[in-house]
Simulated scan of single mutants.
Amino acid sequence: MKAELVTLDDRFSAIAGDEYLERLYDAGRWLEGPVYIPAWRSLVFSDIPNDRLLRWDEESGQVSVFRAPSGNVNGNTLDTHGRLISCSQGNRQVVRTEYDGSLTVLASHLGGSRLNSPNDVVVKRDGSIWFTDPPYGITSNYEGHRAEQEVGGCHVYRISPDGELTVVADDFVRPNGLAFSRDETQLYVVDTPEKHIRRFDVKDDGLTGGEVFAPCTAGRFDGIRLDAEGRVWAATHEGVHVFDADGTLLGKLLLPDVVSNLCFGGPKRNRLFVTATTSVWSWLITTDGARPPYDHG
């Protein structure tokens, strides 16, 4: 499909890539959580209602089931050792896939109360894991299991390197996608019903600030990622919106379906992978994704 771009600022022209988008897969129900795994040259992504993780192989172009059932996994990322970290909405847990394929539960309760349904997750270079916990997985049986909310709110959490779980932000309606700035001094967090992205300052093991960084002008925001120049790439109902670090909306990549999430991958991190309703799209671009925490170079 030909890439449909909307340029709103001349700075957007510096990142435009291929003239065409590639559809890598089109048989999902609601796809989410793409993460590129360099060691496998593969993209792993979630099909939440179908309760499975799928894997697209870069060499063959084939898609296979990576794990089913998955616990209605939503967001995924890699930790500082390249291990898969996943938000299991159905099981109300954050889990790590070990090298032998076994699962380790990293977070499931705050005190004696079960988490809502962990949604999206990022890892800091110090090994801490930060995630959002809206109730999407417990409001119905569609992408989880209907249940009562036990935690008094929808928070942003931090798991310390030694495993301690703490609330770092508790003033969200439904926090969703999140991403660190390149130097990890700031954390961007989506509040989906509020239709905006907020930006916090990272202080030791917590957050301060939280002003609105950018409003959504096309439905609602979902997942977000940063590129190597500090620009914010955000999933919206009409496609991907790209913001400069100063909050200016530079341009848009329009897609035919509602976009849920995105990530950078490929050997040079210059391939954008986008999950959009039933499909996974790929776009080779002229910028690179931000250096991930497992890259110690």
Score class of each variant (00 low, 15 high):
V156Q: 00
R269P: 02
V121F: 02
V274E: 14
L262A: 07
L84S: 04
T286R: 12
R67E: 15
M1G: 06
N176L: 09
G17F: 05
T248Q: 09
V123C: 03
K195P: 08
D170W: 02
Y188T: 08
R41K: 13
G266K: 09
G177V: 05
P161F: 03
A179L: 07
L54Q: 01
L84V: 04
R11F: 14
A68K: 14
A245V: 13
A107F: 07
A169R: 01
N119M: 14
L249H: 12
V151K: 00
L254T: 13
A16W: 08
G251D: 01
G71R: 00
G111S: 06
T139R: 12
D288Y: 08
L187H: 00
V156W: 00
N50M: 10
G209Y: 04
I224Q: 10
N270V: 15
A290S: 15
D201P: 04
L187V: 02
R41V: 11
L253K: 05
P118V: 09
Q62C: 06
D244R: 08
G82P: 01
L31W: 07
R11N: 14
H155W: 03
F180I: 09
G266L: 11
Q62I: 04
R67H: 13
W56Y: 15
V202M: 05
G289R: 11
V259I: 15
G223S: 15
H109C: 12
L262G: 09
F200R: 01
H109G: 02
S70A: 11
G61V: 15
V232C: 05
S64C: 11
L24W: 09
I129K: 01
D205S: 07
G33K: 00
R92T: 04
T97L: 05
P293S: 13
G289I: 04
L8V: 11
G112S: 14
V232I: 09
F264Q: 07
N176E: 14
E148F: 05
N261F: 13
R11D: 12
E211W: 10
P175K: 00
P215R: 14
V202S: 00
S128I: 01
L226C: 15
L207F: 03
G111W: 05
Y36R: 03
V274G: 12
N261S: 14
P256I: 02
V168Y: 02
G144T: 02
D10R: 06
A290T: 12
P134K: 04
G111K: 04
E184G: 02
F213G: 01
D18Y: 09
S64G: 12
G266S: 12
Q89S: 12
F172E: 03
D171R: 06
S181D: 03
I197E: 09
E32D: 14
I48S: 03
D10G: 10
N116C: 05
P256N: 10
P256W: 07
V232Q: 02
R92M: 08
G127F: 09
V168S: 03
V156S: 03
R125G: 10
G153S: 01
E238A: 06
D244F: 08
F221Y: 15
D51L: 06
H145L: 13
F131R: 00
T217R: 09
D191P: 13
V274W: 03
R198P: 08
R231K: 13
A147Q: 06
L262D: 11
N76H: 10
G251T: 00
K268S: 15
V274M: 10
V65I: 14
W281I: 04
L103N: 11
R55K: 07
Y188L: 12
R11Y: 08
L43T: 04
F243T: 06
V73G: 01
